[in-house]
Structures are given as C-alpha cells and as structure tokens.
C-alpha cells in the first residue's frame, strides 16, 4: 500500500493555505485547479492539517 494525498476538488476553495506550509513546494495552485507534485511530496501531512475545508486527505493508492 502506498499512501498518497487525495485532493477533493469539490471541497477546495483554492485558497493557497496548503501551498504556504508545504515544505517541498509540492503543490501547484492556479485559479481553480490544484495539483500535488508527487515527485516532491514527502507525505508530511502539513497541507492536510491546515486546509480550512479538509479538502485534502491521505489515502492509500489502491482506494484512489
């Protein structure tokens, strides 16, 4: 099982809070799209914890 961050587009407000705390510049945010760059992400979970709407979740890849 490989953990991954899942982004819930419908819950996201594109506010950039997750970007501000990501230690590895692994989140790309445009006007209304957000992408996690998994080659940089270390699964530290900072983004998951600060997201004001809980639009990010840790999941295992099999359930994606």
């Amino acid at each position: 099982m490989i953990d991954k961050i899942k982004h819930l587009q419908n819950k996201c407000d594109f506010c950039g809070t997750c970007v501000a705390v990501c230690p590895h510049d692994a989140i790309e945010l445009a006007e209304a799209s957000l992408q996690i760059l998994f080659n940089r992400c270390t699964l530290c979970a900072n983004c998951i914890h600060v997201c004001p709407t809980r639009a990010l979740e840790m999941t295992d890849e099999n359930s994606l």
Partner: peptide, 20 residues
C-alpha cells in the same frame, strides 16, 4: 500567502504550522 516565486529563486518562504 500562496507565494511560490520566492521559493523558485531559492528563498525559504514557507510558513510554519504554528504561525499560519
């Protein structure tokens, strides 16, 4: 707050979990 430009230039601009 979502600034990335500084990071691209090698500046450490992230915010700590406590201070955000």
């Amino acid at each position: 707050v979502e600034s990335r430009v500084g990071r691209w230039a090698g500046l450490d601009t992230r915010c700590s979990m406590r201070d955000i």
